[in-house]
Design a protein around this nucleic acid. Structure first.
Lengths: 129, 129, 129, 129
DNA sequence: GTGGTCTAGACCACT
DNA sequence: GTGGTCTAGACCACC
């Protein structure tokens, strides 16, 4: 698992996003214990304080909670996770559609392109880049 | 028309993207003469050198060309513009679908969400800006 | 009965306050024998030395007295207890009014808010715990 | 203006509370510019990072906002300030009544004591201690 | 070992 | 000069 941090945006923001994804996508499960701040930080190649800041952010949003001296845990309320997933999904769709609109792509063309990309993917093309 | 530059990513990259959009979306037309580097830079509120770098980038990709002493012009070959438009559109779709895939959204859910966002937009909700 | 000790303030101070409350509020009665230091400490989940320090403090203020070999007893002079109760009550009121004054709340607003809180409590809202 | 920080509770929390009070009590006014992080920190005798953390907290709650490179400003929406004031006031009342309840003081006795304290204050006694 | 907090000092971009 | 971010290293209390 690589972290792919770029130095253009605040690292702690990228950490938050990345961990959110890992929770939402099922890499972490509700109730799971997260690695310790120090381990997590070293895994991501950042300073423990930076990871601490990211985790505090996640705590503020209710995704993780800390049981002092025992570590940090993913919320065990699946609805919080589902809620975040849906929020993120909708945000992505909105940003995406706005970008396409600026390119002059309407609804039909968007749907068409999506089908094309899915077709290609189904025939073994890779997604990412 | 505001330029909305953020200081997180290299300015010239943002300028390139923005001008690409302006060409592709029809704000600039094939054969149009671009403002002078100096004017363009002052309009965007950036240093002329930065704008220069952005325009050089656009030249490299064939979107604009310099006719010495007469200034810079948008390519008069519509197919180049259409090509860019389609390339950008497809890129956006691929990136978007990859993000959604990471969230665990399949094709059907994506289509559903897109319809929802279009519905909302039709009822007066703003997109992102 | 939980002890709710927080690690922010010296433990023994919190014990003193808590036992004062238990005496003043009638949980312990005049002349009652207190549990042994060891039992009391284990009940509160603290080190016996810490409890010892707390009890010494209470002895200094005349609330409890040691009868050698027989253990520690709550004072059998009800006026001492009543005196403490009134002292604590007045202290709380003074500190409270000072805080409210800093917020710009005058006498009338304070009385109004107190009535509101009592109203809410009467309708089943919990206070603080 | 002294800061009276005690080392028992997180300093940044105390800074938040103190600045909240200063805003709510009218020492800072809506739209006022706060001292720079560095100045503010040195005035309070803390590390700039600690002050930064406190101000970030205040920003999160909407009390102050930062106009990048221009400094931080108190919100110019008086209703936010009034809202905070009322929230704090009610909290204090609740905590106070709960404490008094534990002492066995009912509503009437509380009101009586408040009047006594106000009487004393009116005759020149000091509040605080 | 855990998390939480604080400090000191640095760099960046903007103006 | 402003705020924002990051790092390194320290201390504390709890278990």
């Amino acid at each position: 698992m690589t972290w792919n941090l770029d130095s253009q945006r605040p690292i702690y923001v990228q950490l938050v996003e990345r961990i959110q994804y890992d929770i939402v996508s099922g890499h972490f499960h509700p109730g799971d214990r997260l690695p310790s701040v120090r381990d997590f930080a070293s895994e991501a190649g950042v300073n423990p304080n930076t990871m601490q800041k990211a985790l505090a952010e996640l705590e503020r949003s209710g995704l993780v909670s800390t049981q002092c001296t025992a570590g940090r845990f993913i919320t065990d309320d699946p609805s919080v996770i589902t809620g975040l997933r849906n929020t993120l999904a909708k945000q992505h769709v909105q940003v995406f559609i706005e970008k396409m609109r600026k390119l002059g792509c309407g609804r039909d063309e968007i749907l068409e392109l999506i089908d094309i990309v899915f077709e290609e993917a189904a025939h073994g093309h890779s997604f990412g880049m």
